[in-house]
């Protein structure tokens, strides 16, 4: 058991816990865009910066990304000191210059009292903050269909060779977890298009409601040993079927008892 101080409060944590996890557990609001519990932290967005010091450092302190910093005994953490807030404001300021149209960045900026960026605004900027959460989740799910492509200003998230990805199954985990909702997909009654590839979605055999894509269902049934028939009925119709089946059993016992 490790003992550390967060904002003046003595906190216990387990060996190997990351600072951000412990800070969040204490109910302290530290912003972060690239953090997700399902995947390894990467420290890409830099927003979870905190100030750390120790008794023996004689007043010296340093700034670390809390998502990547493992807890240590005797650490003194400050999450909202004037210096940290200034640092965070600078980062948000830079984000605001690069992604002026992103509602998530605007929300963050307003939370920290920034109304306009002090830097030069990028005119044709998009909303992708290059946090890489989509690529990490895609890799963790075992697809690795997308990755960062290029360097510097040309860096972007794209499938290999920027062609329709063959490894993608259209599970939409990248789009659903994108902090700025940048990843776009289109959906109609029986198909779904993401990363330039169109997938056929399975339709419920009873009510016709679209469920997951055929590729994703086939992947799950192959790797996870789930009958493909499970995916051919939507959850509402599955519940109705369960009620009908149970109803027949109960009615049979009623008739037997009568």
């Amino acid at each position: 058991m490790i003992k550390l101080t967060i904002n003046g409060k003595l906190v216990q944590a387990d060996e190997g816990d990351m600072l951000l996890t412990v800070i969040r557990r204490e109910g302290i609001d530290v912003p972060s865009q690239c953090h997700h519990q399902a995947v390894e932290p990467s420290g890409a967005c830099r927003l979870c910066m905190v100030e750390i010091t120790r008794q023996e450092w004689d007043g010296w302190s340093k700034f670390v990304t809390s998502c990547l910093y493992p807890v240590e005994d005797g650490l003194i953490v400050t999450t909202h000191s004037a210096k940290v807030i200034q640092l965070r404001k600078t980062i948000i300021d830079l984000y605001l210059a690069r992604h002026p149209n992103s509602t998530e960045i605007m929300r963050l900026a307003s939370e920290y009292g920034i109304t306009r960026t002090t830097y030069e605004t990028v005119v044709d900027g998009d909303d992708c903050i290059m946090c890489g959460l989509c690529t990490r989740i895609c890799a963790h799910m075992g697809f690795s269909a997308i990755s960062t492509v290029g360097r510097g200003h040309d860096k972007e998230i794209a499938p290999p060779l920027k062609e329709a990805p063959t490894d993608c199954t259209g599970c939409l985990s990248c789009a659903n977890n994108c902090p700025t909702n940048f990843i776009e997909f289109t959906r109609d009654s029986n198909s779904l298009t993401i990363w330039g590839r169109t997938f056929e979605t399975l339709a419920c055999s009873q009510c016709g409601k679209a469920t997951i894509t055929r590729e994703f269902a086939e992947h799950l049934s192959k790797t996870r040993d789930i009958p493909i028939a499970y995916f051919e009925v939507c959850d509402d119709c599955h519940r109705k079927e369960t009620a009908k089946t149970m109803g027949r059993v109960v009615n049979w016992t009623r008739e037997v008892q009568a």
């Binding site: 659903n176 997951i212 799950l220 959850d235 119709c237």
Partner: peptide, 23 residues
Amino acid sequence: LNREMCVMCMACVAACPFGCALL
């Protein structure tokens, strides 16, 4: 369900044969 770890792929919603994982 650990909601912090869920990536919203809807696999469980589609897979449950009783329709009891819900969105």
